[in-house]
């Protein structure tokens, strides 16, 4: 019994690392949460580098084909929050994993087209997401990642509508 206990203690840092590498620091800015979850989930700032957030926030009149304009004060406040907590300013393991696969001269805007994102979802078949009428798009994280709103993307929390839990 004792040796299993010792094994658990020794392996604990590994377990801890697994858990924390599936966690983005959750959104703690109320204005961002309110303004930017009217149409979609309030994505955690750790997904994109600061330069991407800057670009996105300066082109809200054409936000992926929609008009998401804000008044100047709100726009400045939210931009500040996003850039301060962006992937290149974050100590979160998961943020660093995303950042590592973004080249320095790249300014991506779409989280679901990031290299790390694609890699993590490469086993997902179209009928589970894009052709699944209950999901439709990879941008709807919270539809399958049931704790995405809290920043948690743990595999055990995945529940794909009409398909169920994800077993790797």
């Amino acid at each position: 019994m004792k040796k299993y206990f010792i094994l658990l203690v020794l392996l604990f840092p590994w377990f801890e690392a697994q858990a924390s590498s599936e966690q983005m620091p959750s959104v703690d800015n109320q204005l961002y949460k309110e303004e930017c979850s009217a149409c979609h989930m309030a994505y955690q700032p750790g997904f994109l580098p600061a330069r991407s957030w800057e670009k996105l926030m300066s082109s809200l009149d054409d936000h992926f084909g929609e008009n998401a304009e804000l008044d100047d004060d709100a726009r400045k406040t939210i931009t500040g929050y996003l850039t301060n907590n962006a992937a290149d300013h974050s100590s979160a393991k998961l943020a660093k994993k995303f950042l590592k696969r973004i080249s320095n001269d790249d300014m991506p805007l779409r989280i679901s087209k990031l290299n790390y994102f694609i890699k993590e979802h490469d086993e997902i078949k179209p009928h589970m997401v894009t052709d699944n009428p209950k999901v439709k798009s990879f941008s709807r994280c919270e539809t399958c990642h049931r704790q995405a709103d809290e920043g948690s993307y743990a595999e055990k929390e995945i529940d794909i509508p009409d398909f169920g839990k994800w077993e790797d």
Partner: peptide, 8 residues
């Protein structure tokens, strides 16, 4: 209603 793109 429902957002045409995001379904929200």
């Amino acid at each position: 209603g429902k957002h045409a793109k995001t379904g929200k």
